[in-house]
Design a protein around this nucleic acid. Structure first.
Lengths: 342, 342
DNA sequence: GGAGCAGATGGTAGCGCTATCATTTATCTC
DNA sequence: GAGATAAATGATAGCGCTACCATCTGCTCC
């Protein structure tokens, strides 16, 4: 037998300060302390100060698990993106979580890897934390996922795309419109040969389809397509472009499904000593910060990633506050930025 | 008065399935259902199946808030990075959260914006969720932050840097060593003029200091320094490099504090028609995916971002499991990758 | 065949907080 | 200054789960 007891009374030893401790020290009831934290306007100024002093003195940290259980509001928000490491999604999340934090919510992040089944299992897991709302990327979800979301009975905001039939709210823009706009731009500029450098990404495919449809209508059916797997990269752009070039593609314009790919393509074109845009023209997608500063500066499709994040947060917050005005569909639009690669 | 009641009985109406419901349906006690979920090996196979059937039938989703409150294990992990949108940190987080998820934990993400006071307030907020562990970037934290972390009494893993005195565990590498290694490499290669293109980032400054110290010892005190603010960008790299070039820097080697800056620098150098590496040599930092494929391929310092994330997760997980072996300091090292910009 | 034991299951209590309603105290009106 | 109203505070109960210990069953063993 040991003289000092083992660590099995850890719970007691490390027991942290609770709301009751603060209440006792301040000489008020626990519920008053709760009010100081959650509805300070409903407490007399004198009491408020007394309690706040006690909070500071004890170093009290509210327990959101207990609060969430009692109030049925976890103040947690789930966010699911295809890829955390892709700065394009990361930027949306940055602005989304910033605004959610300002409103008193914390963000639980998950990565679906562009896979529906992974998104589904992620939703199942993340719902255990009883988030008050959920941020999804895209509008395509498995039936089971939709069922779970419906059963969870919480606000859902879908992003990055647009649909007349969102699960709840959708914030994004039309990828079909993007495809059409670029196709029409290529036709207007009079490019003879047309190519596509695209990732195997759902939204990229949407853009590609409408892009091709417009060209077809104009009689252009001979479009060279180079597809690369997700996640995309600079290297994938080089390889994808190399494939196009090796097949004899020249004196034409290429629509790339991302700026990252376009940047790789740029490198490949330059390494072959071809002239941009005279021999190869290029349009990116995303207007990443570097797009304006590549050599030559990249023509690309711009849309506001930050705005998507903010509007998505606003949509959830207005739902939480039971606000009347609920715009179910928020189109943030896009813009073709003409620089020097076309 | 309305004929149908208003929505104030929402709690009852949308009341979700609880563990008790499952227990009743399966004809067992609630605690047995709990065991099925948390310790399935302690339940008879027959009972297990019966309960699992009931779970599937009811669509039961465990409530982690309740479970966490009762067990004092939230299965939440807090992670704080300087910048979510910076793919370098994002990649570490990706691998960290992947491994944590496999172990049954979810990640709460926060952004400190490279600021200590913001990190501090973030820690205060995030501790309310009673995370079981916390992932920090860097080893510099405010005294108040350290106090809160200590009071929280949970495992802490600091990353991206190394120190003999971590708060708890540290996973990273020595930035001083990086600075020294690059300086020695420049001296060995015989570069006459030396420049620095660096962000106002704490770790970049560490590298810069030891870099300068080595050069000084070799008698090189005339180093041109161009500093740019965080967050860094391609454009910042161009601007920073332009400043160096405008000051007459030529026929020398530049140590850039990130590949992003280096890529911008590359564009600036090329746009001026200077030859790489004959007139300007360049070393980046990070070995981003594109570094090997720029034109010309970038010499840079490589370190394993994924490994940092994984090792950090492993450190926390081994702590949770009360495993004996606890390596307090995990050095993942780095490597100078010589390509064609030097 | 009954002591002894491991394995399976259940009862009780409580984690730390907040919703709800009740009560007390301050403020107002004429 | 009595009565009415509003503001401030408190008592009670319970959110959904798990730790802890108790109980029960079936089995082995000599």
């Amino acid at each position: 037998m040991q003289s000092s007891p083992p660590e099995n009374n850890r719970t007691r030893a490390t027991r942290s300060v609770t709301l009751d401790d603060v209440a006792k020290l301040a000489g008020v009831s626990p519920i008053t302390v709760s009010r100081v934290l959650n509805h300070p306007d409903k407490v007399a100024v004198k009491t408020l100060e007394k309690v706040q002093k006690a909070i500071a003195l004890t170093g009290y940290v509210p327990n959101m698990l207990a609060g969430g259980l009692a109030s049925k509001r976890s103040r947690l928000i789930a966010a699911i993106v295809p890829s955390i490491a892709n700065s394009v999604y990361a930027e949306t999340i940055k602005f989304f979580s910033e605004r959610m934090r300002d409103a008193g919510y914390q963000v639980l992040l998950g990565e679906s890897g562009h896979k529906q089944e992974q998104e589904e299992s992620l939703i199942a897991t993340i719902l255990r934390s009883r988030p008050d709302g959920i941020f999804l990327t895209g509008i395509n979800h498995s039936p089971q996922a939709k069922k779970m979301l419906f059963a969870a009975n919480i606000p859902v905001v879908e992003t990055w795309d647009i649909t007349p039939t969102p699960l709840d709210v959708v914030v994004g823009f039309s990828h079909q419109d993007v495809g059409r706009a670029v196709a029409e731009y290529f036709v207007d500029k009079g490019f003879e040969r047309i190519g596509i450098l695209s990732a195997e990404d759902h939204r990229a495919q949407l853009r590609q389809q409408s892009f091709l449809k417009v060209l077809e209508r104009k009689g252009k059916t001979d479009v060279s397509i180079s597809t690369v797997p997700v996640p995309t990269s600079f290297l994938a752009g080089r390889i994808g472009m190399a494939r196009l070039l090796d097949e004899g593609f020249i004196d034409g314009a290429v629509f790339s499904s991302s700026d990252t790919l376009a940047q790789g393509a740029l490198a490949e074109i330059q390494s072959r000593g071809l002239e941009i845009p005279r021999q190869i023209a290029l349009v990116g997608f995303g207007d990443q910060p570097y797009a304006a500063h590549t050599v030559p500066p990249l023509t690309t499709v711009k849309f506001d990633r930050a705005l998507i994040g903010q509007k998505a947060a606003d949509a959830l917050i207005s739902r939480f506050n039971n606000e009347k005005f609920d715009q179910k569909i928020v189109d943030v639009g896009f813009q073709l930025i003409e620089r020097q690669t076309t």
